[in-house]
Design a protein around this nucleic acid. Structure first.
Length: 490
RNA sequence: GAGGCGCUAGCUCAUUCGGUAGAGCAUCGCCCUUUUAAGGCGAGGGUGCCGGGUUCGAAUCCCGGGCGCCUCACCA
């Protein structure tokens, strides 16, 4: 009985392949057996024997056992070359009727493009000098009932690539590479903070009161407690509670959820690294930000200059720095006289419109107005601005940091103002979080915190034009209108 | 949320003015034991995203809807 999937039971490919699976069973072979253990990966075979000549391989008679998906078949009457792909790459297999046992050749006759096979054999070189496994014992370990996308053009339809990412990963090798790079970037970030004596922590994703960023939250409901909860928009307020508790250097790499628009720069759930260091200011955090990005670039790419969409970006510290008001004046060409009478909120608007798109190379913009920075410490010389910066690269906001406000009385007042703005209809204003204020009242050491948008950083380092290219399963509208379970949970 | 573009075979794409929908790959059959998008001969395969409308006749024109992509707005 056919499950509820895309192709109907009359699907030609499905029927043919199902028949071959049955034929395998009649031959006494389980088309989904799990009794094979490879001795090597494709990459290991290439690494270990790529320097051997054909004659040397004949002399050594190297036996290997590998498994992988058949992604290309070039068949002759009684022989065939298969391209076998595993997690590390691919290796060619050579099937010959008079080398395989009669039973194994029957198995081969049940093979379709896309099946996962196991093979034991010895290495040799073909006429064209390609390192190849001459197949001996041969099995189909997983029968694929659906065909692969076309071999030459690959899978191009972006919607299918995102909805059925596994096909994208099989058909488009660059995709796996991008996500391997993403993983290495995360490893490097962790390594950097561990080297700096930071402790990695995990704080709640479900918040009774969302906070730490100006953003609309997702709402959910806990049945047993019968209360609404919000998916976190930022870990900030929890990480600062940990600093109050004596964790003077903490970082967290995790998801944030913001109920806002989707674009090439925005996914509703996205990954940030956020870190806090006591007895430091935003000045030190600028140095950490430069350093961690340079560290990542060097360990992942081997260089701090990277080409992004045709532009060379130079991540070699130090990055350029401008106070916001200076950036708007000098880069935005807004006259001094006009800047003096501009409100903080209007200044930020001018910055985002006139300056930010022009900031291609990594640039710190510092001293954001206090109105847009309810959690940041005021500047000692100018209380209308905060000791805060954002990092802009290629016109995009990549990071945000500030010296933390640790005066509980000032913090309470600023949160009251946010709450008031919320009651007046500002949906992105923050809630008043009394529990957080209480934590500050117990004393948070002078601290500076910072964050980096991981997805956007990965985009820059993998030359990805869209955030969906660096998120395995970006949010798409469900294909069926009905996305709730048929029976609602009581 | 607004505008633009797209949706045709399993995949990648054609289809000039509205007149019985095509190719390559894939599939099936035959030949073929060193290929690299193997090759040769032959065959099958279509809800043209969905629903209306106009028309003798719609993949094509019109209206509505769906999904995606891009740009803008919001945002990180």
């Amino acid at each position: 009985m056919m499950a509820e999937t895309k192709a109907g039971p009359t699907d030609e490919y499905y029927a043919q392949r199902l028949q071959k699976a049955e034929r395998l069973r009649k031959l006494g072979r389980n088309p989904y057996a799990n009794d094979f253990r490879p001795t090597h990966t494709a990459a290991q075979i290439h690494a270990m024997w790529s320097d051997r000549t054909g004659a040397a391989l004949e002399a050594e008679s190297v036996a290997v056992a590998i498994a992988g998906r058949v992604v290309a078949v070039r068949a002759f009457g009684k022989a065939a070359f298969l391209k076998c792909q595993d997690r590390t790459g691919s290796i060619q297999l050579y099937i010959q009727r008079d080398v395989l046992s009669v039973a194994d050749y029957e198995i081969y006759e049940c093979l379709d493009l896309g099946d996962i096979v196991s093979v034991k054999g010895v290495l040799f070189r073909t006429k064209t000098n390609e390192l190849t496994i001459r197949a001996g014992p041969f099995a189909i370990v997983t029968k694929a009932l659906r065909p692969l996308p076309e071999k030459w053009h690959g899978l191009a339809d972006v919607e299918t690539r995102y909805r059925q990412r596994y096909l994208d990963l099989i058909a488009n090798p660059g995709v796996r590479e991008a996500f391997q790079t993403r993983a290495r970037i995360l490893e490097a970030i962790r390594a950097y903070f561990h080297e700096q004596d930071y402790l990695e922590v995990e704080t709640p994703m479900m918040h009774p009161i969302p906070g730490g960023a100006a953003a609309r939250p997702f709402v959910t409901h806990h049945n047993a407690l019968d209360c609404d909860l919000y998916l976190r928009v930022a870990p900030e307020l929890y990480l600062k509670r940990l600093v109050v508790g004596g964790m003077e250097r903490v970082f967290e790499i995790n998801r944030n959820f913001r109920n806002e628009g989707i674009s090439t720069q925005h996914n509703p759930e996205f990954t940030m690294v956020e870190w806090y260091e006591s007895y430091a200011t935003f000045e030190e955090q600028m140095r950490h930000t430069e350093a961690v990005i340079a560290y990542v670039c060097k360990s992942v790419l081997g260089t701090t200059t990277v080409e992004y969409q045709g532009t060379v970006l130079n991540f070699t510290p130090p990055f350029a720095r401008y106070r916001m008001i200076d950036a708007v004046g000098r880069i935005g060409n807004v006259p001094e006289a006009e800047l003096c009478k501009t409100s903080g909120i209007a200044l930020v608007e001018l910055f985002e419109r006139l300056v930010q798109p022009k900031l291609i190379q990594p640039t710190f913009i510092t001293h954001y107005p206090v109105e847009v920075s309810p959690l940041a410490r005021r500047n000692a010389d100018d209380p209308s601005v905060t000791d805060r910066f954002e990092l802009i690269v290629y016109g995009r906001e990549i990071g945000n940091a500030f010296s933390e406000l640790n005066d509980p009385v000032d913090q309470a007042e600023r949160l009251r103002q946010q709450a008031e703005a919320k009651t007046k209809g500002d949906e992105e204003a923050m809630f008043y979080d009394a529990d957080f204020v209480t934590a500050l009242e117990h004393g948070m050491p002078p601290t500076a915190g910072a964050s980096l948008g991981i997805d956007r950083l990965v985009m820059l380092l993998t030359n990805a034009p869209s955030i969906r290219d660096v998120i395995l399963f970006p949010l798409l509208r469900p294909e069926q209108v009905e996305c709730r379970p048929a029976t609602p949970t009581p």
